[in-house]
């Protein structure tokens, strides 16, 4: 599955769950994973504390310069439409950063604005 990373200044489990409520079927696992289903596909939102070990140093610096001690969430998806639904719901927040794993790292509202303004944007086609 593809992954969008959301960096937050603290644990956002409750916020994300609340923001997704009503948009589709939500299932919460014991480990905190929230599974969103909209009839098209599944999107998994989960805290991921090993993401920082996957980033190149400059990429990690870009994030930690904005959020000193980020908590990372992975948004795992296969279907870009389902992912756009989830991202626009949970990331429209000035306190979070969105990293689409294809070279774009933006504050949440800016990323959401890009998503909303470009209906056909499938960033999986973008070279990181």
């Amino acid at each position: 599955m593809e992954t969008v990373i959301i960096a937050t200044p603290h644990v956002y489990d409750a916020e994300f769950k609340q923001r997704l409520a009503g948009l589709g079927t939500l299932t919460a696992n014991d480990d905190g994973t929230v599974i969103f289903e909209d009839g098209r596909s599944r999107v998994y939102v989960l805290r991921n504390d090993v993401v920082s070990d996957e980033f190149e140093p400059d990429r990690l610096n870009r994030i930690t310069s904005a959020i000193a001690h980020p908590v990372f969430y992975a948004v795992d998806f296969s279907d870009i439409v389902s992912c756009r639904t989830v991202i626009t719901a949970i990331a429209d927040d000035p306190d979070v950063l969105v990293d689409n794993d294809h070279g774009v790292i933006l504050p949440g509202p800016e990323f959401v604005k890009m998503v909303r303004s470009r209906d056909d944007w499938d960033w999986r086609q973008d070279v990181p």
Binding site: M1, T3, E54, F55, A74, D101, H102, P128
Partner: peptide, 14 residues
């Protein structure tokens, strides 16, 4: 097989 088109963030946990 787990596939990533990008740089692979999240792959370890996946």
């Amino acid at each position: 097989i787990q596939v990533k088109a990008g740089s692979g963030a999240g792959l370890t946990r996946q």
